[in-house]
Amino acid sequence: MPKLISQINQLQQLGLNAKEGVVYQPSRGFFKIVYQGLILPNLPAPLRYFNYISLVGQPRIPLCYNAHTITTSAIDTATVLVSNSQHSVGHLKTYSIRRQCQFDSEQYKFDKTDLIEWKIPKIHLQRLDLEMGCNLTIHISENISNNSALQWGVSDYWSTLCLCEGEVFYKGQKYQVEGLGRFRHARALHLPFLSLCFYTCQIINLNETTQLAFSQIRNQWNIILCSRLDIQEFGKPVESFTEDVNLHIHRVYPKVRTPNGKEMYLPREFSWQCKKNGKIIFELYAQSRGDYKFGLAAGYVGSFQYQLSWNEQCLQGEGGYCEYIDCRPLRWQEKNQDEKILDKLMLLQPCLYKK
């Protein structure tokens, strides 16, 4: 029980901490885990979305630990996931940090395939691959206001809107990309085991300047540690909602076994609801496109169609972006499905007929 309370307190103390400034540097010293990710939602067909996510080292967290990609040791393993809605077999690349990677203060180089270069506020991403590649330039704000850190300085994280331009290559076709995205960066110590077992995040561009992101984290006991909605307009501070932000899974695909030997259910239809003072202020209903790809740490990425209501307006789109990892024991995953059936049965009203 003390361990559980400590984990909840750590997540509850995540907060805005812009005073420390943005830390952006390769893994060194005690910080062995480094995450970087670009997400571009709401792209035109056939891409629908695009992501470029690198993870240096694998922390001792069920959400992140993927034994399938480890060849030497967890701390020597780097992965780079580059995907869109189209089918691909080589979207996840695995590297030995010691043998195949070169890191310095201005770039990460993963063998001869993946390259991340930065000179803040500009970041360059490149993948040289016959199946799917990219050459993208990211422009981020110099004043990142949503910088946050776990207590004791064991981890820090920031996420910001960005403008992205460049080219995506897929099976001989070239697609021009230009628009609003999200860039995330995090680093952490090689922490002891933390029982973070469920994570999901959905990102949508409402228009050319405004983006929203839903996210939720649970532990192995199915306790919600964090559930939030972030709405941000480019060049302005993020507006966050952390009370009465609820996720509902309505239908799932048949149970899948991941390459690392875990079993989980992926959402087919789901919804988010955010209330303020008991009144619904934001509601999203989504249908997965069925294009899930494994490789986001121990889970999947994909896209979805959606309908949403906000400020008495109804909107719909085709290219919402979804991240989903569920490493909870199956009794929690399957219990949720049984509860939905029971909920429907409870709606049935008995009728008495007098003869």
Score class of each variant (00 low, 15 high):
M1F: 10
K3R: 14
I5P: 00
I5L: 08
Q7I: 12
I8K: 10
A18R: 13
Y24K: 08
R28N: 15
K32R: 15
K32F: 07
K32I: 12
K32A: 15
Q36W: 02
L38D: 04
P41E: 03
A45E: 14
P46I: 10
R48V: 04
N51L: 12
Q58L: 14
Q58H: 10
P59V: 14
R60I: 09
I61E: 11
C64H: 10
N66I: 00
T69G: 00
I70N: 01
A74L: 08
A74H: 12
I75A: 13
T77P: 05
T79H: 00
T79N: 03
L81F: 11
V82F: 02
S83A: 14
Q86I: 13
V89H: 10
G90M: 00
K93Q: 11
Y95H: 04
S96W: 08
S96Q: 11
S96L: 11
C101Q: 08
D111S: 15
L115K: 09
L115R: 11
L115T: 11
E117H: 10
H124T: 06
Q126W: 01
R127D: 07
G133H: 12
I140D: 09
I140L: 15
S141R: 01
S141L: 06
N147H: 15
S148L: 06
L150G: 00
S159Y: 02
S159Q: 15
T160K: 02
C162F: 00
C164G: 00
E167L: 06
E167D: 11
E167N: 07
K174T: 15
K174A: 14
Y175P: 07
Y175V: 06
V177M: 02
V177N: 04
A186Y: 07
A186H: 03
A188D: 08
L194N: 13
L196E: 09
C197R: 04
C201V: 05
I204H: 00
I204R: 01
I204L: 06
L206V: 01
E208S: 02
L212M: 11
F214R: 07
Q216W: 04
R218D: 04
R218N: 03
Q220H: 12
L229N: 09
D230Y: 06
I231V: 09
E233K: 05
F234P: 00
G235H: 07
K236M: 03
E239A: 03
E243M: 03
E243A: 12
I249V: 15
R251S: 09
Y253A: 11
P259M: 07
N260S: 12
G261S: 05
K262N: 11
W272H: 05
N277K: 13
L284E: 01
Y285L: 11
A286G: 07
G290I: 06
D291M: 05
Y292L: 04
F294Q: 02
Y300E: 05
Q305R: 14
N311V: 00
Q313F: 05
C314W: 09
Y321T: 04
Y324T: 04
Y324E: 05
W332M: 03
E334G: 01
E334M: 10
N336R: 14
D338T: 12
D338Q: 14
E339I: 10
L342H: 06
D343F: 08
M346S: 09
M346P: 00
L348S: 11
Q349E: 15
